[in-house]
Computed example of a mutant assay.
Amino acid sequence: MRDLPINVDADAVIAIGNYLDDHSKATAVSVSGAIFAIRKKAMTTLSDNELEELIVESAAARHLAVLLDTRDN
């Protein structure tokens, strides 16, 4: 995993880690579901795209499958 930029919200990174640690390895991680859950757990100013990037990178580091189900409105 790459080094995080200095402006990344630590609470969001911790929430993503906790979310992925609790996720089953038998099912893919829904990116839109993860973003929704992270927004409920951590008050962050990160955009959905920034959260998506962190979720995908963190899931890859844990060898979890990812369901890319986000869409632009």
Results as ranks from 00 to 15, higher is better:
T70Y: 00
D9E: 10
A34N: 05
G17W: 00
A60G: 15
S47V: 03
F36A: 14
L64H: 00
D22S: 13
K25I: 04
L67V: 00
L54F: 13
T70G: 01
N7P: 00
E57T: 04
E50W: 02
A37Y: 10
L46I: 04
N18L: 13
D72G: 06
L67K: 15
V56G: 01
I35N: 06
T70A: 00
R2I: 09
A61F: 08
A42Y: 03
L4D: 03
I16F: 02
A15G: 14
D11H: 04
E53G: 15
T44I: 08
P5Q: 03
A15T: 08
A34F: 08
A10N: 07
D22H: 10
I16V: 10
D72M: 07
A15V: 06
A34T: 12
K25F: 06
A15H: 06
N18R: 13
E57W: 00
T70D: 01
V8A: 05
D11K: 14
E50L: 09
L54H: 12
S32A: 12
T44S: 15
G33W: 03
H23Y: 09
A15I: 06
R71C: 03
I14P: 00
A60E: 13
T45L: 07
V8N: 01
A28Y: 02
A61L: 15
R39I: 09
I14M: 05
K41L: 09
Y19H: 08
P5N: 03
N49S: 15
H63S: 14
T70I: 08
G17V: 00
R2C: 01
A34Q: 02
I6F: 07
A12M: 05
I14G: 02
T45Q: 12
V13M: 05
V31L: 06
A42D: 05
E50I: 00
T44E: 04
I35G: 10
D72P: 03
H23Q: 10
S47N: 04
D22C: 06
E53N: 13
L4W: 08
T70W: 01
L68D: 05
L4P: 02
D9C: 15
D9M: 04
I55K: 01
I14S: 08
R2K: 06
I14E: 07
S32F: 02
E53V: 11
D9T: 09
H63P: 00
D11C: 06
